[in-house]
């Protein structure tokens, strides 16, 4: 579904990703792991077209998307939940969801389906996004991305700073998406979440790919996981 081939990208003259390659299949939860500054967020931003590629290719559904204008990337069916949520805080919950729905011209039922996954938001549709609790904001960030009915969802540390009940809700939602055949590329630092959700995991270090492990290999080598994550 998604394939990165020898991608180099960065900020101006600073190269962050160096020849990064991995792929995500439909219905797969693929974790992107590494210490702070390894290039995980940069990889997601490069996929979304928010950073220009210096070289390499990004393919989605067989088509090259690495050099598309960035606003056309979500229209292909790629949803993005950025680190820190980055909600439109002055807009209401309903308006944030509408922005997500409009991104790909999804039908109105897409909003209802997203609210089914996060029913807590249904009571807060008229509330400003910036006034929600941290967990609710994360739910809204995910629901907003789901409103475009994505084929692939990019999640950047969705459980960061959340209380356990919220973390469970986010994990349940990821599992549900996987069951629906949505591919998920997940940046995650929590080992328990990685072991519980990942079908495969790719390790990044200093912007380079160290390799990809399957779920079974991850389960067999939790120490390696701890060492690579630096926890």
């Amino acid at each position: 579904m998604l394939r990165l081939e020898a991608v180099d990208a960065g900020y101006g003259p600073v190269r962050v990703l160096r020849s990064v390659s991995f792929d995500v299949a439909a219905g797969e939860v693929h974790c992107l792991l590494g210490r702070n500054g390894a290039g995980k967020t940069t990889a997601l931003r490069a996929i979304m077209g928010l950073l220009p590629l210096a070289s390499g290719r990004i393919r989605f559904g067989g088509a090259e998307i690495g050099r598309l204008p960035p606003h056309r990337v979500p229209r292909l069916g790629i949803g993005y939940v950025p680190q820190g949520r980055r909600l439109f805080a002055e807009l209401t919950v309903a308006q944030n969801l509408e922005i997500g729905r409009m991104a790909r011209g999804a039908p109105a039922r897409a909003v209802a389906a997203a609210l089914d996954l996060f029913p807590r938001l249904a009571d807060r549709l008229g509330q400003r996004a910036g006034t929600l609790s941290g967990g609710e904001q994360q739910m809204l960030a995910m629901a907003r991305a789901l409103c475009l009915e994505p084929r692939l969802l990019l999640l950047d540390e969705p459980t960061e700073g959340l209380q356990p009940s919220m973390i469970r809700a986010i994990r349940d939602a990821v599992a549900e998406l996987k069951a629906r055949g949505v591919g998920v590329l997940l940046v995650e630092q929590r080992i328990d979440a990685v072991l519980a959700l990942a079908d495969r995991a790719t390790f990044l270090e200093n912007g380079r790919c160290l390799g990809t492990l399957t779920a079974a290999e991850l389960q067999a080598a939790p120490d390696l996981l701890r060492q690579r994550l630096g926890v």
Binding site: H71, R72, P74, R86, M102, L148
Partner: peptide, 9 residues
């Protein structure tokens, strides 16, 4: 940037 990530030109 987030607007761009949601298809807004």
């Amino acid at each position: 940037e987030t607007a761009t990530a949601f298809g807004i030109p």
